[in-house]
Design a protein around this nucleic acid. Sequence first.
DNA 1: CTGTTAGCGCTTTCAA
DNA 2: TTGAAAGCGCTAACAG
Lengths: 340, 340
Amino acid sequence: MRPTVHDIAAAAGVSLATVDRVLNQRPGVRHVTREKVETAIRQLGYVRDVAAANLAKGRTYPLVFILPASDNSFMHGLNAEIRQAILRSPAERTDIRTIEVPAFDPAALVAVLEGLSREKPCGIAMVATDAPEVRAVVDRLVRASFPIVTLVSDLTGSLRHHYAGVENIAAGRTAARLLGRFLGPRKGEIAVLAGSMLVRDHRERLEGFTSVMAEEFPDLAILPVLEGRDDPEIAHMLVAEALGNADIIGVYSLGAGNRGLIRALKEKAVDRTLTVIAHELTAHTRAALIDNTIDAILNQDAGHEVRSAIRVLKAKADGLAVIESQERIRLDIFLKDNLP
Amino acid sequence: MRPTVHDIAAAAGVSLATVDRVLNQRPGVRHVTREKVETAIRQLGYVRDVAAANLAKGRTYPLVFILPASDNSFMHGLNAEIRQAILRSPAERTDIRTIEVPAFDPAALVAVLEGLSREKPCGIAMVATDAPEVRAVVDRLVRASFPIVTLVSDLTGSLRHHYAGVENIAAGRTAARLLGRFLGPRKGEIAVLAGSMLVRDHRERLEGFTSVMAEEFPDLAILPVLEGRDDPEIAHMLVAEALGNADIIGVYSLGAGNRGLIRALKEKAVDRTLTVIAHELTAHTRAALIDNTIDAILNQDAGHEVRSAIRVLKAKADGLAVIESQERIRLDIFLKDNLP
DNA sequence: CTGTTAGCGCTTTCAA
DNA sequence: TTGAAAGCGCTAACAG
């Protein structure tokens, strides 16, 4: 059997309470006593049974998810995954609440975070709007030892404990290489549809995309970016207009609002072959992949992101380690053949 | 607070022991009493605290992993992941043992399984060799209520509870589409290197590959399959010889032993452009992807497979549900831009 | 500063 | 067929 607090107490010649105080680095133990206990712990190779500890403490983990109020399929999916996690709450001892904030609005996000610093959630997961004032509050909260993870979009240079999302520069580079290889020897222009250059994930995808294009596919010229604000209507308008240009042979949609993109493609591109790469697998993009309107979809698994955020926040709250490789969010690449 | 056994006992007017007997469907409870307790459980919406139950029971999960004794990087990686899981055993209450059997040898596998039916592991994870005699034992064990999951390679038509591995037909189809799209309008021949047609994963990859090739890329002709037995030396020999054929413009390596493939490619294909797709990300294939010897790698995450197998076996042992989407093993597609 | 004791939610003897 | 009581490994009052 593995050693318990009783064994430590016996070995060190102290009581259970003292062992517990040392284990939880609570004050009120003489230095020498502490040493004795720590020696015993090391010698017996004691490891604490977290489940038993949580049972005794009646511990639960109050967690808050802060999400942008965006009406697109990806955010709906993310919400759905959080609701699933809430259903699992009893078993996982979590107590999850979500707060919606206006999208692309640093001030609103700051206000919510300020509010949270008064109640005491044991962890915060947030889709970050990448702005200095947001970073400032986050850093302050982290210093006040709130565990914080960013979700989907990261916060440049901040102290957040972890980022649960894909590497977006790599995503953009991957999109460029797929598009370049699929187009082969053809020459022409590439349209890029983004949501907003105010969020870091979109900026980074664009950065990765343009750099690989420049380095390796000089025959493909990137047109000025269309900013669709992740809104299907705006996206539709912009893309429909852009497709008037007959030199366009490829499209990279790096944000959300793909409903509009797809509609524009079906209306305007019936007569020519366009190679299209988009982000996020939703009902709409899936259908478009199957009917060959889209050639490849890059995806981040919202379920994995939510589960990962929860695992990491719980671990940070307890000062425990995580399995790094398990928390890495992969960039999924879907062709019509490997859809889930 | 959520209800506990005490609440149930009080509501039903019985003792804790009786509640426990009902909860664990143990005998020795009168029918009417059982009804009373079950009603109380339903009315209060009781859900059992598995952690507390495991603590009280001192429960551990003895698990066995059966692996082929193959000397290739993928199997080494799988082994390493199992060792990681063994390190986590104290926290996860598992007790994991691995057994090696000769590769591609149904009889040996059957013998090991027979042996296990005498000890009583609470779960078995196995890399299956796909043969009727193996299926027979597995089905017998499943009927005797051993939880069994197949790992990496599945067992056709068997009763195993779960398969922790990628969908291999989809993998083959994906490889075909990538190769076809990367080659674009070119015409030529495609070499296929497999391990053995005796394992189901290789057969299925080939099946998926050939069907998409036939349907969608008629200008690409598939040459007879080379069987390298997942052995780098044999693979090297076969590929080196095949590359004497100057019409080959693409290669699909669907098994292991890629060290040999890569060596042959570097020796023989310096003077021409070959598009190459291989399976499994290892130190060798990673280097080859970076130096452009390989164009894309299809991968299954061994760490995910092992963790998933463990989660599923534990859940089955307790009669609990799993999160389906979490247990789906994805087909990872790596280009040089999105390597982990 | 340190120890005693009760108890978290569940299971398991052992008696009745 | 049922119940009382002890205990899993740990924590938290409350005394001393």
